[in-house]
Amino acid sequence: MAVTSLSPPPVPLLKRLQKPRIAALIFAIAWLPLMAYVMAGDQLGDLEQYVLVPAIPAVILLYLICMAAFRESWIALLGATLVFFWFFIAVAAPYLPLIDPNKPIAPFTTPLTEKSGFFFWLGTDFKGRDMLSRTLWGCQRVLVWGVTATFVAYVVGTAFGLIAGYISGWWDEVISFLANVLLSFPVMVLFIVILNYLGPSGFNIVIAVTFASAPAIMRIVRGLVLDVKTRDYVFAAQTRGESALWIMVVELLPNVRGPIIVDACLRLGYTTVAITTLTFLGLGLQPPDPDWGLMIKESAKTAMLFKFSYMLLIPALSVSSLILGFNLMADGLREMSLRD
């Protein structure tokens, strides 16, 4: 290729890593092991101990890339810091010097006290399990299932949105009608119906979240597509004889991604709330593995006593900080997109 002769001026390393493909690769290195660890930990066998090792530097690198990319907005920086804190904890949990989160030691130990030869920074719950360890381990499941569910909802919603917006006609009528039917259910009712029918499990949460979120995503994408498809470059592609699929994926999708990414950050927050709520209702992830929703549920009764309210407050604050992180990131991204 003759183009290579024109070497671009040297760019700082972090800037070069911000290129979408490289950043996506690093994200994959960080994310896929975590996903495998949480979803299929039992089948990994011996690998389970090592699978998260490459993810730790990848998360740190990803954090630095985000810092460089978001430096224009301190809101986004703060949000990213909160999110990446939990992301880091999620991949590093197996290697941190933590007490086994499922091991009952000393029930009802208040924070910052020593008992049975252990120092409990955050105390223990009613079964005597270390709160610190459970909180840190608990973020894995919320994070993995939350992000997976949101991602699947986005894939489905975006696909339908592209079809409804671009092909329009009867496709639009049918898709929009189904979306309206789904949107007319209260979200929680929809969740409960689906999970009661399918049975509680992580994968079924993904399905439930997809049903609940995809219609709204579809509408956003459809609206964006309706605007973008009138642009001349789409017209140019049509007159070039490009197929509808090519136009949707290559011409339209990259140009609607901006608002979608911002919305995805917000929706990650909603999904996290939803998953925690479902677990709290007993419809989501099942005991005994630590999970924030589960921790809130289990401690709900004991926490009536003020002395033991920490059992409820700690997981609740953890959920809030993660959701706050996602929302701040969404705000920051929107602010940055408005500035350009």
Binding site: D232, F235, T239, V250
Partner: peptide, 20 residues
Amino acid sequence: TISKLQMIFQNPFDTLNPSH
């Protein structure tokens, strides 16, 4: 036939796909 007939558009800000 398609390649024989091509078009130049009015709005320079719309004529190219900003993503490519």
